[in-house]
């Protein structure tokens, strides 16, 4: 309980250089086999990766390649059929507020007002009201939603709901934040803004982020490291060293274009034209 509040307090004064509060995620030979329509289906196959504390990792891959399955296993909502996932050396068994998830689907409780949604995780862990309100308000401000604090979720648009989910996840101060295509339903301009918001929050709180996206450009804008998955396997794992913030020009440097071309190749697309 106190750990949460301490994290928020200490990071408030510190910028990029603050202590890393993120955790290390280690996946060892992780497999997930679903039975789909009576048949076994290997959704994740023998994935072994180590995500370092404070790293911002993007996972890119076509629809159905097992990205959400990986995320759900990392949160502990789903158990691997074989293999193990561990956070800071502790095997992952079931969900815990250490590992936050922004779901691909809408997960904001429709029966709670926006502010009650954002404070809910803190309330569950007994953070006093004043304190959780101020934490929630801070993150609502970061996602530009201060003005809808007292609204019902039904009164918000799809993109606004996503931002509520993001504020909720950040308020809970996880050591590992998993984001499953968080900006898929958001317009282009808002998406750019939110990318900046997430990067700012990440830089400030120094947590570990795993971010799923279909969009190669988004991955290049955000990540320290990009993992490409197809058919349940990791087919490419690369570091992106460019300075942040990466504006549009930064994405067209020769190195970036090379990253992009080679990733698209791994995704099985023709490389001419780039986009």
């Amino acid at each position: 309980m106190t750990a949460v509040t301490e994290n928020h307090k200490t990071t408030e004064q510190v910028e990029n250089s603050g202590p890393v509060h993120g955790a290390e995620l280690v996946a060892t030979n992780v497999n997930k086999v679903y039975s789909r329509a009576g048949q076994k289906f290997h959704a994740v196959e023998d994935v072994s990766v180590t995500i370092k504390p404070g790293e911002f990792v993007c996972i890119v891959g076509p629809s159905g390649c097992g990205k959400s399955t990986m995320m759900n296993m990392a949160t502990g909502l789903l158990e691997p059929t074989d293999g193990e996932l561990a956070l800071d050396g502790e095997p992952i068994r079931g969900p815990s507020p250490d590992r936050g998830l922004v779901f691909q689907k809408d997960s904001v409780f429709p029966w709670m007002k926006v502010i009650d949604n954002v404070t809910y995780g803190l309330k569950c862990r007994g953070v006093p009201k004043e304190e959780r309100m101020s934490i929630a308000r801070k993150f609502l401000a970061e996602v530009n939603l201060t003005h809808v604090e007292k609204s019902w979720p039904k009164e918000l648009s799809g993109g606004m709901l996503k931002r509520v989910a993001i504020a909720t996840a950040f308020s809970n101060a996880p050591k590992l934040l998993l984001m499953d295509e968080p900006f898929a339903s958001v317009d282009y301009v808002t998406r750019l803004q939110l990318q900046k918001t997430v990067l700012d929050l990440w830089a400030e709180h120094r947590l570990t982020v795993m971010f799923v996206t279909h969009d190669v450009d988004e991955a290049l804008t955000l990540a320290d490291r990009i993992i490409v998955m197809t058919n349940g396997r990791v087919v490419d794992d690369r570091r992106v060293a460019a300075e942040r913030p990466r504006r549009l020009e930064a994405l067209s440097t020769p190195t970036m274009l090379e990253h992009k071309a080679s990733m698209l190749q791994h995704l099985g697309l023709p490389t001419e034209g780039g986009a």
Binding site: T75, L77, G94, P95, S96, P97, R99, G100, L101, F103, S107, F109, Y120, G121, C124, R125, T168, N172
Partner: peptide
């Protein structure tokens, strides 16, 4: 699921 992830 969301509640569980939040620590309910």
């Amino acid at each position: 699921q969301s509640a569980l992830v939040l620590g309910v």
